[in-house]
Amino acid sequence: MVEFLLIPAYWKEEVVLPADILEKLSSYKSIAIFGAVQFIRLEKVIEQLKEKGIKTITTHGKRTSGKFQILGCDCYEDSFEEDVLSADAILYVGDGLFHPKALLLAKAKEVLLYNPIAQTLKTITKEDIEKQMKKYKANLMKFLNAKTIGVLISTKPGQSYLNLALKLKKQSDKHIILFVDDTFNYNHMENFPFVDVWVNTACPRIGFDDVTSMPRPLINITDAFDPGKALARIEKDFL
């Protein structure tokens, strides 16, 4: 039996907004706040914003255990208990793009990124995910007419959803073949030319972030159950 110990690797310094960045944020009446696990000690930032008269909305993603934290898979409108989209702005504290892009996928129009290491503020918008959403829409259209489907099932404990794969195999009128791996190397898709479209059951971000670099079309499992509804949602919310 293997034991696991998780070390979050917290940033050692207190996260504080520099005066010029605080000034830029002062034009907003309300701000929803998120952070990467390394930077979720955000009490000082919240205090700074409140002192400026800004209402702060705080919550965390449903798949996380940390206060103010968001994960990449918290990428749906219902990923949060609070209505973060009602805020004038969403502020993410961290040093990468993977987690804040989850907020764009959850329908935020833009996200402000404060990098506490570089002490910079930048903005990402819907346009930053437009290319992948266009590709995903094309993949959904190919799925509608596909006859043979390869379903990818991961052995990673947190990404293994065999139940969904079996449900699709039972319900679908297409030919469904089940494939298993740990980390997917998309080049291996080429070894199975009889598969028209692939369906991902592992991490939802595979379907949104990786599709532009895959050799074959892929959609996410949730959309495979109702591709027409998924198409309408993408056209309405992203394109």
């Binding site: 293997v2 034991e3 696991f4 070390i7 696990v37 898979c73 947190g158 990404q159």
Partner: peptide, 25 residues
């Protein structure tokens, strides 16, 4: 992430995995 912990390492006799950079998923 914490969704991506390595399995199968017990075949090498590993008894403890320390995963850095993540908390409970």
């Amino acid at each position: 992430g914490a969704c991506d912990l390595p399995l199968g390492v017990q075949s090498l006799g590993v008894q403890l995995v320390v995963a850095f950079g993540h908390n409970q998923y």
